[in-house]
C-alpha cells in the first residue's frame, strides 16, 4: 500500500529543510569542488592523457563523472541516515505511529534523498565547460536521468544501513567502512581495469560502480573507456534499488 500524501510530505519536508540550511548546501558542494580541482588538478600532472586507459581524456575530465557520483553518494547516504538522527531525536516516532505503510515511509525517505542529491549533482554538472568538456542537450538530460537513478539507489541503500543502527554514534563507522570503500572501489578516481584482481571483484559487487560507469557513458559518449554496457549499468541500478527498498521496508515493518 502506498500513501501518496505521506510520501509527498516527507519529500516536501526534506526539500524545505534543504533550502533553509544554506550551510549544508555549501558544505556538500564544497567537497566535490575540492576533490575535482585540488585532487584532480594535482593528479592530472602525474597521469598523462595518452595512457589509453582513460580513453584519451584528461585526468580531471576522467574523474568528473566520479565526482558527480561522489556528490550523490555523500548527500544521498547522509539524507538517509538522518533516519538514525530522527530515531534518536524523535521525529521518526511521530512518523512510525502514523497510519502510513512502512513502504511509503521508505519510498518517501528514498525520494527525499534523491531530490536533494540530484539538485547538488546538477549544480556540479554545470561546471563541465570549465573542464573543457562539450556536452550536448541529450548528454545533459541522460546524465541527469542517471544521477536520479543512482541517487535513488544510494538513498535506499542508506535507509537499509540506517535500519541497522539505533544511535548516531555509529556515524563514523558508516563513513569509514561503507561510504569511503564504496567510493574508492568504484572506478570514480581510476579505471577499474588497472586495479588488482581482488579489488576488481569488489568493484563488481559495488552498485555504485555501475552508476559511475553509466555516468561515463552519458558524459563521454563514444570517446571513453567503459567497464560495462549502459544496459548492464542501468539494469543493476534498477534491480539493486528495488532490492534495497524491499529490504528497508521489511526491516521497518519488523517490531521489536
Amino acid at each position: 500500500m502506498i500513501e501518496v500524501n505521506a510520501i509527498y510530505v516527507l519529500v516536501a519536508r526534506e526539500f524545505k529543510k534543504f533550502i533553509r540550511e544554506k550551510s549544508r548546501l555549501i558544505s556538500t558542494i564544497a567537497r566535490p569542488l575540492i576533490w575535482l580541482f585540488l585532487v584532480g588538478g594535482g593528479m592530472s600532472r602525474l597521469v598523462s592523457p595518452g595512457m589509453g586507459l582513460m580513453g584519451g581524456v584528461t585526468y580531471i575530465q576522467f574523474i568528473f563523472p566520479g565526482i558527480l557520483g561522489m556528490t550523490i553518494l555523500f548527500s544521498a547516504i547522509f539524507s538517509s541516515i538522518s533516519i538514525i538522527w530522527d530515531k534518536e531525536f524523535g521525529l521518526m516516532k511521530e512518523i512510525l505511529v502514523a497510519p502510513v505503510s512502512r513502504f511509503s515511509i521508505v519510498l518517501g525517505k528514498a525520494l527525499s534523498g534523491t531530490i536533494v542529491s540530484v539538485i547538488q549533482a546538477v549544480i556540479i554538472l554545470c561546471l563541465f565547460p570549465l573542464l573543457g568538456l562539450k556536452l550536448g542537450v541529450l548528454a545533459i538530460i541522460e546524465t541527469i536521468i542517471i544521477c536520479t537513478l543512482l541517487s535513488f539507489c544510494i538513498a535506499s541503500l542508506g535507509i537499509v544501513i540506517a535500519t541497522f543502527y539505533e544511535s548516531f554514534e555509529s556515524f563514523s563507522v558508516i563513513m569509514n567502512f561503507i561510504v569511503m570503500p564504496m567510493f574508492f572501489l568504484s572506478g570514480a578516481m581510476y579505471p577499474v581495469k588497472m586495479l588488482p584482481d581482488i579489488l576488481k571483484v569488489l568493484t563488481r559487487l559495488n552498485p555504485f560502480t555501475y552508476g559511475i560507469d553509466a555516468l561515463k557513458h552519458a558524459i563521454f559518449r563514444d570517446g571513453g573507456v567503459f567497464d560495462f554496457s549502459i544496459v548492464t549499468d542501468i539494469g543493476v541500478l534498477l534491480v539493486t534499488s528495488i532490492v534495497f527498498v524491499l529490504i528497508a521496508g521489511t526491516m521497518f515493518e519488523r517490531k521489536k
Binding site: 529543510k17 540550511e21 524523535g90 521525529l91 511521530e94
Partner: peptide
C-alpha cells in the same frame, strides 16, 4: 500520541 521525548521537527 505525545511522547515523553520531543518529536517535533525543530527546523
Amino acid at each position: 500520541i505525545v511522547f515523553q521525548d520531543m518529536t517535533l521537527d525543530k527546523d
